[in-house]
């Protein structure tokens, strides 16, 4: 009987340990400013400025930038930002 009780205790403790999530500081979460619509617009403008300095802008890069702008407009901010960053990445000459 003692053995059964011991096993039950181990199971309960183990379950509690696993279910317990990491507890960071109780301070409020800090907002990341690079996941906002403003940053998306900033990226779009930055792409436009950079691409204006290029003689030829790769079609794939422009397509990514356009898609990123559309996604941001649709509220899918992080996906749009990701496309815009990829577009900028493809513009780099030493890529």
């Amino acid at each position: 009987m003692k053995l059964v009780q011991s096993l039950s205790a181990i199971l309960v403790i183990g379950t509690a340990t696993v279910q317990a999530q990491p507890q960071p500081d109780p301070q409020p979460a800090i907002r990341v400013t690079s996941d906002t619509t403003e940053f998306c617009d900033h990226l779009s403008r930055y792409f436009a400025r950079i691409s204006a300095g290029h003689h030829t802008v790769p079609a794939a890069s422009r397509a990514l930038a356009d898609e990123g702008g559309r996604l941001c407009a649709q509220g899918l901010i992080r996906a749009g930002i990701s496309r815009l960053r990829m577009a900028l990445y493809r513009l780099r000459p030493n890529r």
Partner: peptide, 23 residues
């Protein structure tokens, strides 16, 4: 790209975990 400096950090250690809000 973080809005503000964390109110409380584990200053005795260089490393920490921080709750953030993304979109």
């Amino acid at each position: 790209n973080l809005e503000s400096w964390p109110l409380r950090m584990a200053m005795d250690e260089d490393w920490d975990e921080l709750r953030i809000e993304r979109a």
